[in-house]
Design a protein around this nucleic acid. Structure first.
Lengths: 174, 174
DNA sequence: TTTCCCATGTAATCAGTTACATGATTAG
DNA sequence: CTAATCATGTAACTGATTACATGGGAAA
């Protein structure tokens, strides 16, 4: 139930309406961490209010309803954030493809590895472009971009390494 | 609809029953790439057979029904594997936590970063233990383990870097 | 006045989990 | 004979997406 925690986190920064929150998910948050549409967000906010984690203010213009996080909500958010445990059973479509590339013939497998390396490089470039100009700025944006850069660089390098291994293996067997 | 492709991939290696496939998801595949329970797998196999991607053989002992991948299934599997595109909108609970740690107070944030680094180190150790003994073996297991090692090392190093930045930042502001 | 954005919702459907339920075969 | 494992399923529910639907307010 991570949508609930994503919403709690956003409300912890500032009170917001369902509409505002929907917009947040269209930015980097939705691209890199968690997506959600308004049809999912509005009902969830109601449930959260019913559970005492958020409170709805009076409806404003155009029926706008602003939500605030409650103390119980902050407690739950902190509990979830610090309840570590890298959980087994994460779903990752890219890793799933990796597990299945041995069903491809060698040429297709090479294509896949090459594509992977290229796409990771593109992500690295895109994230570099998002980095703030002054290198000593310490911000959430910096932190998150740096995380993404390191992660995609690691996968890119892995793909290149795998390609080399692959070719070395083919040469020796021919 | 990745379960379908996971099943196609497994069937591409060898014909199998729903029971066999369920067991596969209890191994590394389920731990690192994709999980599924038998209550999800059996109905999906039926749908796949209805869609012509797999074919069920006669029921064997104890009602065992073995499925085989069809040509249409192989075509669809290959299409999915090579239809690259690192898709935006991936859900990742760890990255979500990262996006929300700025709502924690500094001490909690440090705790989170420290935990992250430690857990990644544990994953790296666990994956090293899974590596085959001969270093020049080129196998799916080697490939997948190497992928995991590099990915977790990258996150571990990021967390250590972030902690340093964090502390440097605090010293300069005090 | 018309168009765009703000703002909210319902209904249908799909994906996935948990709980419940059954029977056949094999090993001890 | 009895326990473990093989083998399959249904039903209820939660989480998430897609399609459909409505109306207010501001600017051109």
């Amino acid at each position: 139930m991570s949508l609930r925690h994503a919403l709690l986190g956003l409300l912890a920064r500032a009170p917001a309406s369902g509409y505002d929150l929907t917009k947040k998910f269209e930015g980097p948050l939705g691209t890199y961490a968690w997506q959600a549409g308004h049809t999912h967000i509005y009902p969830e906010l109601k449930k959260m209010a019913a559970d005492g984690l958020a409170s709805a203010a009076e409806a404003g213009a155009r029926g706008r309803r602003t939500y605030e996080i409650t103390d119980a909500g902050r407690t739950e958010l902190r509990r979830w954030l610090l309840d570590g445990s890298v959980r087994a059973g994460e779903r990752n479509e890219h890793v799933l493809r990796l597990f299945l590339i041995t069903t491809l013939d060698p040429e297709d497998a090479r294509t896949w590895l090459t594509q992977t390396a290229e796409q990771c490089q593109q992500m690295v470039d895109a994230l570099h472009a998002e980095l703030p100009d002054e290198p000593d700025t310490f911000s959430l944006g910096r932190l998150a971009a740096e995380y993404g850069i390191r992660r995609y660089e690691a996968i890119r390098d892995w793909a290149r390494w795998a390609l080399e291994q692959y070719q070395a293996c083919e040469r020796s067997s021919s």
